[in-house]
Amino acid sequence: MSDRKPTAAELDLLRTLWELGPATVKDAHQAMQAERPSLTYANVLRLMQVMHGKGLLTRDESQRSHVYAPAQAQDALQTNLLTDLIQKAFAGSGKHLVLAALDAHVTDAEREEIRRLLEDTAKESPDE
């Protein structure tokens, strides 16, 4: 993947393609219009062309309509973006990221689910 990080609009398109799978511009445009009715076909086409140039999308030109797909799996890109965020915003501390998220961005139900996940993880791999 390119060293350039995706913009917010590019991440929206990537989420659409991760859900759809490889798609034409027309397919992606139709899927994205549900949330953004003002989005034009030309906007999606240009965005996909730019993303292909940045290495964020692959393009299969073997068919009449080009088919685009994310160059990276969703979990791989999210891990890379998270690592970058931890380094830049939290001085390399995953703990500080988690504490900031728990402080402001987690519901009580999510907090309980996290607690259960941590307990399950602790049971699976006891301290060495």
Rank of each mutant, 00 (worst) to 15 (best):
K26Y: 15
A23G: 07
R36T: 14
A100M: 15
E35V: 12
P6L: 02
V67W: 00
R15M: 12
P70F: 02
A8F: 14
N80I: 11
Q72C: 13
Y41E: 11
T79K: 09
S38N: 14
L39Q: 06
T24N: 02
I86M: 04
M51E: 01
G55P: 00
R64Y: 15
A89P: 04
L118V: 14
S93L: 08
A8I: 13
A73P: 06
D84G: 07
L14G: 00
S62P: 05
L45D: 00
Q87L: 09
R15F: 11
V106D: 00
K88N: 09
L97G: 00
D103G: 15
G53R: 02
K88G: 03
D75F: 10
T24Q: 04
P37M: 03
L39I: 15
R111P: 02
Y68S: 02
R64N: 11
F90H: 03
Y41M: 14
K54A: 05
A91H: 09
L85N: 06
L117D: 08
K95D: 11
Q63N: 09
H29F: 02
A73K: 09
D12N: 12
Q72F: 03
A100S: 15
E113L: 14
A91C: 10
R59P: 02
A76G: 05
H105D: 14
E35S: 14
H29P: 01
E35C: 15
K88Q: 10
P37W: 03
Y41T: 10
L97W: 05
S62V: 11
W18R: 03
T121H: 12
